[in-house]
């Protein structure tokens, strides 16, 4: 609890420092409405994927297929949208149909992942490693490897418009983050997910429906990826399978950076959101400073590794000491029962 809070505070401090530095260093470039708007419409597609990854990781799993799901959804939506122009279907209907299709496709993808993991007990990393190829492969098959472009003009609202000066993608992300927050903090699904991540067997013995909860988790994960796909294709006004593949590792990075325990059972939504902001801020900042994206990549690796050391290593020392202390009162207590 307090660890999560400390972590969020540390991340917040880092965010403020970076923001202040950039504002002072580049007052005319960084702190402009245009730049803020552009940042706020850039990160949501990635941010949604990161939220998805966090949910999977909280249950002690991982979902390597999120970008592939976004690709498949994106391809299906793009296909519908671009066809609609030729067929002279009203844009509103086409957009509606595309959204419904994305929903259906993402739910199916989520169900497949969930079933593999929860029903067939395939380790999540392997199940989603396989479905990643399956989903992305399907996207490639549908498009024949080409990109699909030109959508009804109205559709660009999703990725490019501002309402009252606030970019629509940002609003979508905010809404999704709130929903994810409510799920994690206040819903039975979130409670069960966290406990399954903490200990699968204990959950089974406590009357939690593990199978159902895990399947639902991967469906929610997939839906978030589906929403991300809508923003992606709208912003680019086209869809090419393979888009956003670099996002995958970054989502894991941000999740861990934000304080999600890769072993499950602990997640820190605030930490992750701050992590996403920091990522965007540094990227834009370095961009404005014309520092190469490669250097950014380097920085990110270094940041993840140092965070790892801080996140896992230091608390473990502290905890280990505490635990050791507790062990004396209680020397054999973990030798509780037969295995």
């Amino acid at each position: 609890m307090s660890l999560a809070r400390n972590q969020s505070l540390a991340l917040l401090a880092l965010l403020v420092i970076i923001a202040t530095t950039l504002s002072i260093a580049l007052p005319s470039k960084f702190l402009t409405v245009i730049n803020l708007q552009s940042m706020a419409s850039q990160f949501p597609e990635f941010g949604l994927l990161a939220l998805a990854m966090v949910l999977a990781m909280i249950t002690g799993g991982i979902d390597l297929s999120i970008v592939a799901i976004a690709n498949l959804c994106g391809v299906v939506a793009a296909y519908i949208l671009s066809k609609s122009i030729g067929m002279e279907i009203a844009p509103s209907i086409a957009i509606f149909a595309a959204i419904i299709a994305v929903l259906i496709v993402s739910v199916i993808c989520g169900l497949i992942n969930g079933a593999l993991i929860a029903k067939m007990n395939v380790p999540p990393i392997l199940a989603t490693l396989g479905t990643q190829g399956l989903f992305l492969g399907l996207a490639i098959v549908i498009t024949g490897g080409h990109s699909i472009s030109t959508f009804p003009e109205e559709f660009s609202f999703v990725g490019n418009a501002n309402v009252a000066g606030i970019p629509v993608p940002f609003m979508i992300f905010t809404a999704a983050a709130i929903v994810v927050g409510v799920i994690l903090q206040r819903s039975r699904q979130g409670f069960d997910m966290t406990l399954i991540g903490a200990n699968f067997t204990v959950s089974k013995y406590s009357g939690i429906d593990n199978t159902r909860t895990i399947i639902k988790t991967y469906v929610i994960v997939a839906i978030l990826a589906g929403i991300a796909s809508l923003i992606m294709i709208s912003r680019a006004n086209s869809m090419r399978p393979g888009y956003g593949e670099a996002y995958l590792l970054s989502t894991i990075l941000v999740a861990v950076l934000g304080g999600t325990d890769p072993d499950g059972g602990f997640g820190n939504l605030w930490g992750v959101i701050l992590g996403i902001f920091i990522l965007q801020l540094t990227q834009s900042g370095l961009n404005i400073l014309s520092i190469s994206p490669f250097f950014t990549k380097f920085i990110w690796g270094a940041a993840l590794l140092s965070m790892l050391v801080v996140n896992f290593y230091l608390p473990k020392i502290v905890e280990h000491r505490k635990l050791e202390r507790a062990r004396f009162r209680e020397n054999n207590r973990d030798i509780a029962g037969p295995e």
Binding site: R188, L195, V202, Y205, A336
Partner: peptide, 30 residues
């Protein structure tokens, strides 16, 4: 059922006492 293996089946050792208690009755807390 209070299971045989407390650490492996009965309790989430890392989670809070509160979560461990309410896990069975969460439905009634909605």
């Amino acid at each position: 059922l209070l299971p045989e293996d407390r650490a492996g089946q009965g309790l989430y050792e890392d989670q809070t006492i509160s979560d461990n208690i309410v896990v069975t009755i969460l439905k009634s807390l909605l």
